[in-house]
Design a protein around this nucleic acid. Structure first.
Lengths: 217, 217
DNA sequence: GATAGCGGATAGTGCTGCTATCCGTTTTTC
DNA sequence: GAAAAACGGATAGCAGCACTATCCGCTATC
């Protein structure tokens, strides 16, 4: 397959494919002449993965490059791949040093120990959680912690479902990719489901349907 | 309060505050002279909200402008505010017209009817969900639909918790804002919790702790 | 042998979220 | 009451991102 066909099959323009190769997202095609190359199914699949992580997962090109590099490494350390994939899910690195932040960190520490979670406050996700809670506190929505355990229950359920899916994958080769897809696209999936459930729940409560059109900017 | 103090209190630089005013995110200060203005607590709070939606919620400046404009409208139509807030959560508007998309739409329609959700396929969230499922299908992870109901259960639980929190707000004034904060920051909160739960679940299963440091690029 | 497509390289684009600079005025400080 | 700082308002510039356009000399194809 030459680059034009790859472009047609995936819907990604030829210059964009070249760009991905330059950025290390996509391995270059195999050269048959000094200036001719062929691409295989692996390239097609990888392009689909790139577009999914980019369009649906909302990842940045450099983040995707990190994930794919970790994915291609022979001795893939799972936590490295996952870490690269999770980086984009975190909040910005804005540091606050106020009372809200301290209180939020305490709440997170309590949550972790209360639920017996085998993790530590040094986990980036814990820091992100603190940031969210601190921001809520600053906005006068500190009472949101009252539903924290409901959220945690739901998160545990989703995590169990993710593991169940990954565990079902027989080949270890596919497993790492399954984890990445599950983590990144699963996030988008839950987000959409949450909005649907939200509409449903408020329809039941208030009798409105909450339908609307997508903004067409 | 003059702009310098507002800047010091919120940690937002003076030029950035001016920029937010220009973009309509923040109302201008009250003029005391042709070129002097004062700001009140409302400005301080609004700035905190802007920073939270921007840094933690990952919203764009124009999206925040839409949300805040809807929030300031006298006869706030809740679904309009929510819609503006939800726009940023959607996936890109990339249209595919393949078999995967059709199958995904069917799965979504089935899910909605099976769960008796009071919504319709025309809901943007339903379209987003279809896009996610279609992308998974294209990647050979179509089997992920097997955990769709676990996700939906969790989403329902989170939606119920959100409504419970919002319902607790006595003043209707604060309610709309509570919905926005709950929707946008709640998303970030769940994301962090999911990652924590993920680490915990895989630690229980595989005995690893999955700890890692945040990339410092 | 013409024409289309190719690989590789470099430069440019549109958008986003600020940041820098300037102006003339006002407030503060000494 | 003079110097310095801060201010409001306007315009211009910047860095990062995800491409996109153009050009080159070469190659596959009709």
């Amino acid at each position: 397959m030459r680059i034009g066909e790859l472009s047609r099959k995936t819907g990604v323009s030829v210059p964009t494919i070249k760009y991905y190769v330059r950025e290390g997202l996509l391995p270059p095609g195999e050269l048959t002449s000094p200036n001719q190359a062929t691409y295989g199914e692996a390239h097609e699949r990888r392009l689909q993965l790139i577009r999914a992580l980019l369009d649906v997962g909302g990842m940045k090109v450099t983040e995707i490059a990190d994930v794919l590099a970790a994915l291609d490494e022979p001795g893939r350390p799972l936590h490295k791949v996952l870490g690269a994939a999770a980086d984009h899910l975190g909040s910005g690195d804005v540091e606050h040093d106020d009372a809200e932040s301290a209180a939020a960190r305490a709440v997170v520490a309590d949550l972790i120990s209360r639920r017996g979670w085998r993790t530590h406050e040094s986990n980036p996700a814990a820091a992100d959680l603190s940031k969210v809670l601190a921001a809520m506190g600053r906005l006068g929505h500190g009472a949101f912690v009252e539903v924290l355990d409901d959220y945690a229950d739901a998160a545990e359920q989703v995590a169990r479902a993710d593991l169940r899916y990954v565990d079902r994958r027989v080949a270890v080769e596919d497993m790492v990719e399954a984890v990445v897809v599950g983590t990144v696209l699963g996030e988008a999936m839950f987000s959409a489901l949450r909005r649907l459930a939200h509409v449903n729940a408020s329809a039941k409560l208030y009798g409105t349907d909450g339908q609307r059109e997508r903004k067409t900017s």
